[in-house]
Amino acid sequence: MSEIIEDKATTNTVSASVNAAVSIESPLHYFLGKFSGMAQAKKGAVGLVVEEAGLRGHLNLRGNPQSELFTAGVEQVLGVTLPLSPGTFETNGDNSIYWLGPNEWLLIVPGGSEGRTETALRQAISGHIAIVDISGGQTLINLSGEAVATVLKKSSGYDFHPRHFGPGRCVQTTLAKATALVSKKADGSFDLVIRRSFADYLASWLLDAGREFGCRIETGQR
């Protein structure tokens, strides 16, 4: 592809700023530390823990899965196999690739590496592809705790029962009156990718849905 794309199209990344005076607000910024339900939800064990992962790089990737050049290129750059089965994701810990559609994937990479990743992908792959940095537009949150299954049942019509939705599965579906990409991790917890503009609504929703079990929102360590 042309130089123009590499130089112009990829400049806006979260890591672009190095100035410490620049303040950053994650989508759940104003909810971190909030809790609902029992008084001890602030610190103690609660039924639902919502953890916002630190800022990650989010890239939307489009391409032809029938092209070996494409699939091999992605794997070479990310060290993760491109998932071709609908509703699955692959991860190596640092980088994750989620199937979104027959020619669409979400890449989640360590915060700050999205620009490098995009450049590397464009160098590795030729042909008709699209890569779009959407790091500012969404956030990764993790739901854990005993009440997770019930809270998901409250929130979505999708069947998250372990028989139907095991580790390695992901799905884009409705969550309350918004949408989310939900995935099941090996540790039994669920990762959600939600849109920034709906983050306040969904955080309020989760606090409310989790109230009967105790719910806390915190900065994630996962």
């Binding site: 939307n60 008709h128 537009g137």
Partner: peptide, 13 residues
Amino acid sequence: LEVYFTSVTDHWT
């Protein structure tokens, strides 16, 4: 037509 569309509404302020 070879073209892809991606929403970036939430990404940009």
